[in-house]
Design a protein around this nucleic acid. Structure first.
Lengths: 270, 270
DNA sequence: GGAATAGTGTCTGTCAGACAGTATCGC
DNA sequence: GCGATACTGTCTGACAGACACTATTCC
């Protein structure tokens, strides 16, 4: 461990022996998002132990760097999901997992300096999670009930009081903003909608993520005008809810980038 | 330091004592970008010591987590620029510094597990850098000479052979892509152009970052149609290079988000 | 038939690309 | 005058928003 050294020694040694520096813990935290009952939900775990025991938090895990097989940050994120919530095989199932950003403000964890690399996972309706290691409870919670701060807070900004542990409310807010932006220009929304869906179902995904209502006809026109986004499944929806013409069923197309994009309405008229 | 423990003990302790885990070094690395002689350039340092001695690398610094004032990742990035290249006061000068992403693949540093949080800085023409601690040389190098890989490589992907140390070529590629995307919908390009500039000068910034040619007339129309992007400085350029009507001078406007955006041409016509 | 939902057609406004034409300099 | 650069005007096509209209179901 680090002895007391002069500042000059420290700067010199930095190039040669990173172990001379005070330790930092690195975690991978996952913001798993899905749509349930028309609401955008995030997968949270209730912490069983201090610090922040009893509060909802993101599933996370410390990065394993030694041993037979050191892991990538992305693998640590997938492992955190499996260990904390019982959701396994996400990578094999093709669930999209991407890096969000990294949070390392001093004091964000009372134990020591902790740098958290946050990941976002986008998933269609998944099974109920199970409480894993160190977890009292695991559940999908609607993001609208969490009182999230504005996304994009600068580093060092004080995070408003919330019901989530550490600075996880801020991380969830950034993840939701990523999802809102990502469904504009990628075919990601189809991943939320499941194997087969109607245009109305896909529209409800956009409406849930963006928290707005969309014009059904214009939406359908734009989706069908984006080659590779959806392709007809060849059958009709069975027994629509409260009458009405049955909708055609679609499945996700081969494309990943939408051209043209499905842009959300921009306010900001001068 | 960590003793040998069973896997179950390890998982249990993870919640209580992060120090029981093997140490990870965290660095903040900076990709500083600027335009020099019509070329997009990145600030690199030639490493004076092993590992990778003699190779060009990004200026970086290990995160300080203990002592009187633990620092944020962003402050560590600014400190790295100052210590390694002598460029100080960037934050005070309003230089834009934003987090890019985090790189933590096992084996990316031969010494130990190193997680690097990369930052991007966008700057107008800056003074020549000076070689700092552990650095043999510091210089602005055109990105076109570096043989960068495609941006957006997934985690764990093997980085092609380059002239840069570690996986820094990949980081620079991601930073350039960020800059290319960022000048579309923010007024960032004005930051490259300096305090006063002509529309042609601003256009050359876009052309350098995007590596394409733009139609001068359409470009001017789009820039002037984006409120808050530029405002006339009230004077004309003095002594244009090879004759021709002198161009009007502009300065950066108050806006930061461009509405409408200055979109780069999309190829991808079916 | 009436209500409800699905889907099509059309009009209008915004913006990008192309390009012709005008303005103003150095030589 | 001539070339070079700066800037303006106009046409066309792509796309978004609004909305009228038709189609098909349940009640």
């Amino acid at each position: 461990m680090a002895k007391i050294r002069s500042s000059a020694d420290e700067a010199f040694l930095a190039e040669y022996d990173p172990r001379a520096f005070p330790p930092v813990a690195v975690t991978a935290d996952v913001v798993a998002l899905t749509i349930r009952d028309g609401q955008l939900c995030v997968l949270l775990v209730r912490r069983a132990r201090p610090p922040e025991a009893g509060l909802w938090a993101l599933p996370g895990s410390f990065l394993r760097t030694e041993g037979a097989e050191p892991e990538t940050l992305e693998n640590a994120a997938a492992r955190a999901l499996a260990v904390k919530t019982g959701l396994t095989g996400l990578r094999a199932a093709g669930i999209h997992l991407e890096q969000l950003r990294t949070y390392g403000d001093p004091g964000r964890d009372p134990r020591m300096a902790v740098v958290s690399v946050a990941y976002v996972a986008f998933a269609p309706a998944l099974p109920e999670p199970a409480a894993g290691t160190g977890v009292a409870q695991a559940a999908w919670l609607p993001v609208s009930t969490l009182g999230l701060p504005e996304p994009g807070l600068p580093e060092g900004a004080t995070v408003p009081e919330t019901t989530l542990a550490f600075d996880h409310a801020r991380i969830v807010a950034d993840a939701v903003e990523r999802a809102r932006s990502k469904i504009e220009y990628t075919a990601l929304a189809a991943a939320f909608a499941g194997p087969q869906f109607t245009l109305a179902g896909l529209r409800r995904v956009y409406e849930a993520v963006w928290s707005i209502e969309l014009h059904a006809s214009n939406f359908a026109r734009k989706v069908l005008a984006s080659p590779g986004f959806v392709e007809p499944a060849g059958s009709l929806e069975t027994s629509s809810a409260r009458g009405g013409r049955p909708a055609e069923l679609y499945r996700a197309g081969a494309g990943t980038l939408l051209q043209p994009a499905i842009l959300r309405p921009r306010r900001a008229k001068s």
